[in-house]
Design a protein around this nucleic acid. Sequence first.
RNA 1: GGGGGUGUAGCUCAGUUGGUUAGAGCACGUGCCUGUCACGCACGGGGCCGAGGGUUCGAGUCCCUUCACUCCCGCCA
Length: 595
Amino acid sequence: MNKYRTHTCGELTVKDKDNNISLSGWINKKRDHGNLLFLDLRDNYGLTQCVIENNHQNFKEFEKLPLETVIKINGKVLERNKETVNKDLKTGEIEISIISYEVLGKTQELPLPVFSDQEYSEEIRLKYRFLDLRRKKIHQNIILRSKVISFIRSEMQKYGFLEFQTPILTSSSPEGARDFLVPSRLNPGKFYALPQAPQQFKQLIMVSGFDKYFQIAPCFRDEDARADRSPGEFYQLDLEMSFVEQEDIFAVVEKLMINMFKKFSNKKIIYEKFPRITYKDSMLKYGTDKPDLRNPLIINEFTEIFKRDDVGFDIFKKLVKNGSVARGIITKNTKDKPRSFFDGIDKWAKEEGASGLAYFTIEEEGSEIKGKGPVGKFFSSDSIKEMMKISNAEIGDSIFLACGDISEVQKITSQARDKIGHELNIINYDCFAFCWIVDYPMFEEDEKTKKIIFSHNPFSMPQGDIKKLDMSKPLEIKAYQYDIVCNGIELSSGAIRNHIPELMYKLFSVAGYDKKMVDEKFSGMINALSYGAPPHGGIAPGIDRIIMLIAGEKNIREVTMFPMNQNAQDLLMNAPSEVDQQQLKELNLSIKKNK
RNA sequence: GGGGGUGUAGCUCAGUUGGUUAGAGCACGUGCCUGUCACGCACGGGGCCGAGGGUUCGAGUCCCUUCACUCCCGCCA
């Protein structure tokens, strides 16, 4: 028999009535009636009410045990009478009459209460993460995470994927995020880098003939944090398949996502066949490549309107003349919304750093269509009709307008979609809206340097006839590159890879890398592709974000056991920390002190 | 690197227009209480009001600097 317990705190029922049992766990809560004391004992599995009376020889001493003390209780299972049953507890029909007990782990005064639904500062939560993790909600989130990961493993195996590990100490790559570097003792002056993703390795696995690979892969990127982005490290479901096209990848991932979200969440999945939206359309209609499709609002292109002679909105007309674009959002039937609603949106836009949002409401006076609102008077009846045609707007709807350079307008209209949708309460938050964003451009122009750079992954396969690709117009080349987005959160990106070395050199040369540089920086990859590489492709959904969505959490720390804070510090383990001079010496490093 | 928010008891927070001894709930301590499940009641201990400087007769409150946490922008192929 186990020394500490015969049962867990979540399993005893009336069936165990009159049995002598023992439980071990934490004192979750005490209710001390002076001559009678109730104690809720908690472990990973649940809560059991234990009771002790003042005729017990240790009653006085027992009363003094602080919350969160770990104790073992020997006792007898009693059926509760009808009036005292607690329906909220699995074990609510019984209680344990305490015969004897033993303190297994004492506690100091708690820096944060475990039994409470209060919110605590991140600093205290992270410093005492082991206490925080005892709390119900986050404890359940972490268990959910474990279950989701197990589910992924078994599904992937069912689909015929093999799980492999890839190196953690690897080489620095010139593209992408900042690397974490690890100095090499045996190779003074040289560094390993932690992988930003196992990108090259998974391609090498395909070249090695393994056909279908997956891994719950740790990824390391030295970039600043966000609510949905852990600093330092995160996990991806990294997968890669040989002899496949884009559609084959989509089929596997859609199946996995739908099975997973259905199994672990009750929220509705709006589109079981994920809609495909081209990057170009997404940027136009939603102003971003991670649209939240729960929101019905759509951005409309109105630039041409401001070239008309019967539109007198001079600020926008002038901007448009100089190459700016004008786009707008229609809100349905908002003619009776108070002025404060419209001005609130405008004010908000200004706070977001935009020059504000102009607006008017479409109204009918007699048979005349008119714009009502601060800028309504600048639009002729015909021009409003044209805008209504473009946007399917009707009488009683309102139009919010932004004008500026294209990236500025995309940004503010995208944010305005969220803001207005939220204010109008037209977003159904109780569902999942997945979509694929497809046809990403291979290259883009760096806004500052005006250089041509890879827009996503340099290893992606360009679309079209490979032999006829026009490298003189690189910005027109699309790639077999795709993202999954759910509820406005980018879950993953992937691509069909370029497995043809000559084509790789060509594409790299467009981005300013000559053959020598490519050979040097990507020697492993290029070399491998030169010895018979299969066509292949893959994707890498972010595990942490998937769990965030399923758990309904807004912050990634709520689904991460031991996260770092925003400054990439681990307050529990005190990392990063200074190291001994001796360690530095062995690594051939010296620290330059900042003044 | 830039912008916003927050910082008051162990924890979560209140603190008015600058005004005398800085409050509440939980936790902790003492006492009472035999059916609670957020048990109840009474009493008590506990404060560098994030730190530093300034304005003022007087600063938790106003100003400046700085630190911490957080959200956002940049960044994240």
